[in-house]
């Protein structure tokens, strides 16, 4: 943690940390404290007076059926996005891991969606799945499906999950590929000599050795699905139709912006904060485990 040789100076270190600490205090801690404080306040309809109400905002929130739905929806979205993007990425990574000359090209052609902004990914997918002009929507209608993500909540959810999965495959692929390439060939060859076929080798040797990567990626994917889907949702469905794609983060945004319900929005922020802290803690416990491996 600390260097054996170091500089001694009364002023310089404080000047060096000043910019970062100032920004952190002004734009991170102060607003976070305000969010916690506001979550205990109730503002009247005209914003003229506020009263301290303790946990009333939280109680209201937990009794609001819409909020419970948003929690379930957010976790369902996260699970779907994580499951889909992890399985597709793992399949592609296993295929790309087989020693082959063109390996580098495959990686280049698969990792670029990482750089696409979520909102832009949303625009690409709404264009394909738009009920009146989308190319894929035309295909679905030809199959007899009355596809309309602007009116049908399930269709809208599929749209959001598809766009989010599409964007996340590249990230998972990269980490799976790195994980696979760090597995020593000799272990796999030993299993082959013992007579294990490719499928058996994968599930009994490769996959267990890959499990730290899998676990790490699950946490990262959940965080991604919680927060980075905001851009996709805002660019495509706006949380609708009738709240079918309203996640926790999107609800904080809507309730504060349109509803003007600052107390409830702040209480939602605090609950999100707790979720982030929990996820970060899990992530760091994993890192610790990897170090002691």
């Amino acid at each position: 943690m600390q260097k054996q040789s170091f500089f001694q100076s009364p002023l310089l270190p404080f000047l060096l940390i000043a910019p970062q600490v100032t920004i952190v205090l002004v734009f991170f801690y102060w607003p976070a404290i305000q969010a916690v404080w506001q979550s205990f306040l109730l503002q009247d309809a005209f914003g003229l007076s506020t009263t301290f109400v303790g946990f009333e905002n939280y109680v209201h929130l937990l009794h609001e059926p819409g909020y419970f739905d948003a929690i379930v929806r957010t976790f369902a979205f996260s699970a779907m996005i994580a499951l889909l993007s992890l399985s597709i990425a793992l399949l592609l990574a296993v295929m790309a891991d087989k020693p082959m000359r063109a390996g580098g090209i495959y990686r280049t052609l698969l990792i670029w969606p990482y750089a696409v902004a979520p909102a832009v990914a949303g625009v690409l997918w709404i264009f394909m799945l738009h009920p009146s002009l989308g190319v894929l929507a035309r295909g679905l209608r030809a199959l007899g499906i009355d596809w309309n993500p602007l009116l049908n909540g399930d269709h809208a959810a599929i749209l959001v999950i598809a766009a989010a999965t599409w964007k996340q495959i590249s990230y998972n692929f990269l980490f799976f590929l790195a994980g696979l390439q760090s597995i020593p060939r000799s272990i796999i060859e030993a299993a082959a000599i013992d007579g294990a076929g490719p499928t058996r080798r994968f599930w009994t040797v490769v996959f267990p050795l890959l499990s730290p990567t899998v676990f790490f990626l699950i946490v990262v994917n959940i965080v991604y699905a919680f927060f980075d889907t905001f851009g996709i949702i805002d660019a495509t469905t706006g949380g609708g139709p009738s709240k079918a794609t309203e996640t926790l983060v999107y609800k904080v945004y809507l309730d504060g912006l349109l509803g003007g319900n600052l107390g409830s929005s702040a209480a939602q922020s605090v609950i999100l904060m707790v979720i982030v802290i929990a996820l970060t803690a899990i992530q760091f416990r994993y890192v610790e485990r990897k170090v002691t491996y």
Binding site: I17, Q20, V21, V24, L25, V26, F27, F28, Y29, W30, P31, A32, Q34, A35, Q38, F227, F230, V249, V252, Y253, G256, L262, S265, A266, S269, V270, L272, M273, V276, I277, T280
Partner: peptide, 24 residues
Amino acid sequence: VFWLIFITLMLPVEVRIYPTYKIA
């Protein structure tokens, strides 16, 4: 100071939208 900076990992914009907006 180290912890002060470190903990900001747990405070993404999304969890403090309106207060941050108000300060800005």
